[in-house]
């Protein structure tokens, strides 16, 4: 009896701790959903309740039909996808070089990339604006892609480096002995094994670009090229905040990120390198 108890207790505590953590992490999301479904007349009338007595999809309808949110959403999708692709590609190349090659100045390159991650971006907003304006890259989605790619690539490169490090060198050497060039070895042997890493890195960059507000707000003033985080601010007016619509827009904005991770989670959890070497 006592023994069973002693064996079960840690598991119960473990499960409780996990449940508490999950509840804590997911509660804001739940609140987002709850508010987005609450009719305007009940927003303040019912006090603080876990679930409104009546739900409505009106806010969603309003956001999709009467706001510019679909445009912001499209802009965000373009910017994030482009940033995700570009930064992941650049980061893979850099990460592979860091992991496999010895070259002069490697320590310096790594150092400079680290430094670029160290200061708050707000202090370089002005210089970036000055740089991009004459190039016609302010008020443009391309400008955002350029800036996001530049600032996400260093961290993504370190991430990719660690994924490449986890793949034994023997594998590409075996491919090279088997008649492949280094590039062919990379393409046929290393890249397929790096898919989880590429997915994780791509997901990270995509999400970072998707939720970025500062540059989007500072570099773009026209609504036509606003991304949705900047667009969300439109629901805050001088006199009121339309919480219902804002939250509905927030839920909609979560969808692509959620879908994206659902898509790549297979690669994230799969230990593709299992069985590569040793027993």
């Amino acid at each position: 009896m006592n023994k069973t108890f002693a064996r079960v207790l840690p598991r119960v505590l473990h499960a409780l701790a996990l449940a508490a953590f999950v509840a804590f992490a997911l509660f804001p999301l739940f609140w987002l959903l709850k508010v987005s479904l609450t009719p305007d007349d009940l927003m303040y009338g019912e006090g603080v309740r876990l679930w409104p007595s009546r739900v409505t999809l009106d806010h969603y309808g309003a956001v999709l039909r009467h706001s510019q949110f679909p445009l912001f959403f499209r802009n965000s999708l373009i910017v994030s996808a482009a940033t995700g692709l570009l930064a992941t590609a650049a980061a893979s190349a850099a990460g592979y070089a860091f992991s496999r090659f010895r070259f002069r100045g490697k320590a310096w390159v790594v150092g400079v990339m680290l430094i670029s991650q160290m200061f708050p971006l707000i202090i370089i907003v002005a210089p970036i604006f000055r740089l991009l304006a004459p190039l016609g890259l302010t008020n443009s989605l391309t400008g955002l892609v350029v800036v996001y790619t530049a600032f996400n690539t260093p961290f993504a490169a370190f991430l990719m480096q660690s994924f490449f490090e986890a793949i034994p060198k023997d594998l590409e050497e075996a491919a090279m002995m088997d008649g492949a060039t280094r590039f062919q070895a990379l393409r046929h042997v290393i890249l397929p094994l790096t898919l989880p890493g590429l997915a994780a890195t791509g997901g990270f960059v995509f999400t970072a670009a998707w939720s970025e507000l500062l540059f989007s707000l500072m570099l773009n003033s026209s609504a036509a090229v606003s991304t949705f985080p900047a667009g969300l601010l439109g629901f805050v007016s001088k006199f009121s905040v339309d919480f219902g619509q804002m939250m509905a827009a927030g839920v909609l904005a979560l969808l692509p990120v959620g879908a994206f991770f659902l898509l790549i989670q297979r690669y994230l959890v799969q230990g593709l390198t299992a069985g590569a070497v040793k027993g």
């Binding site: 034994p168 023997d170 069985g275 590569a276």
Partner: peptide, 20 residues
Amino acid sequence: VAPKDRDLAMVFQSYALYPH
């Protein structure tokens, strides 16, 4: 001469089988 052009086969200690 690059390894691929030497026409030698190598068996690695780790076997280095392509896992995928």
